[in-house]
Amino acid sequence: MSKALKLGKVSAANLASLLPTGTVLAAEALIPSFTNNGECALANEYLTLGMIACCSLACFLSSFTDSFTGKDDRIYYGIATWNGFCVFNDGDNKDGAGGEEENNKDRCITAIDFVHAFTSLTVFLVFALSDSNVQKCFFPKAGANEKALIMNLPLGAGLLASLLFMLFPTTRKGIGYGDTPAKSDKKGEENAHWYKESV
């Protein structure tokens, strides 16, 4: 394997850390099969384009998802809307356990969400195009200039995306983020108190 190809793979791997993990894993698992390892027929091209479009949409929409710990110490997931926040996993949203009133006010769509959404979308498209099977499928006759561009594009996109994410930070914790309950465990406090007294 050439040094340039290895550098391109490392850049693409670093780029993947800026994207939703599930979407990247799905793309990495499906691309070899959908592209027939780069030996594409017309059906493979359509399958690959459809998969890239679906994963791109998932990357875009994931920037609007969020999670929070409710009053009952459960983690709630949802998506931001123009009018508030739509919680997915709160069957009885009238009981107030999820803290719907205060979370609706603070979690509306903002301009920063769109910055993150379009950046994630662009980064995923660059990530998908940097895959060697996709390159063989859609750009089989790429010359030296095109190969140099495709090889260096993930590095540039990753740098630009990191800069944008740093300049426009978000407080959203997308679906799948491991949140910890805000309230402390009484049993744990009692054990700590007993330990202090016994020492």
Rank of each mutant, 00 (worst) to 15 (best):
A148F: 11
T180S: 12
F127A: 07
L149R: 04
K173D: 09
L155D: 05
P140H: 10
K141S: 14
F168E: 14
Y195R: 07
S184P: 12
K173L: 10
T171P: 02
E146Y: 04
G174M: 10
A157L: 08
K136R: 07
L160Q: 05
V123C: 14
L129E: 05
G188S: 13
N133Y: 11
K141H: 14
E190V: 13
Y177H: 15
G143H: 00
F139K: 02
D185R: 09
S162W: 03
N145R: 06
T119W: 04
C137K: 10
L121T: 01
V115H: 09
A142W: 05
I150C: 03
N133I: 02
A117H: 04
L167I: 14
T119N: 04
T170I: 13
G176V: 03
T122I: 14
P169L: 08
G176T: 01
H116V: 12
T122S: 13
S130M: 12
P154H: 10
R172V: 00
K136H: 06
F127E: 12
A157I: 01
F118E: 00
G156Y: 13
D131A: 11
F118C: 06
L153M: 15
Q135W: 00
K136N: 05
G158I: 01
S162F: 05
V115P: 02
G143S: 00
G176N: 02
F127S: 10
V123F: 02
K183N: 12
T180A: 13
P169V: 11
A157E: 08
G176M: 01
L153F: 12
Q135T: 01
A161Y: 05
H193P: 06
F138D: 03
E190R: 14
L125S: 07
W194D: 15
F168M: 12
V115T: 04
F165K: 15
G158Y: 01
V126G: 00
K173T: 14
L121M: 02
G178C: 07
K136Y: 00
P140T: 04
S120H: 01
F127H: 13
L163G: 14
F139V: 09
K196E: 09
V134K: 03
S130W: 07
V123Y: 04
F138I: 03
A161H: 00
A128M: 08
A117P: 02
T170M: 07
I150F: 08
G178A: 13
G174V: 05
S162H: 09
K187S: 04
K196T: 15
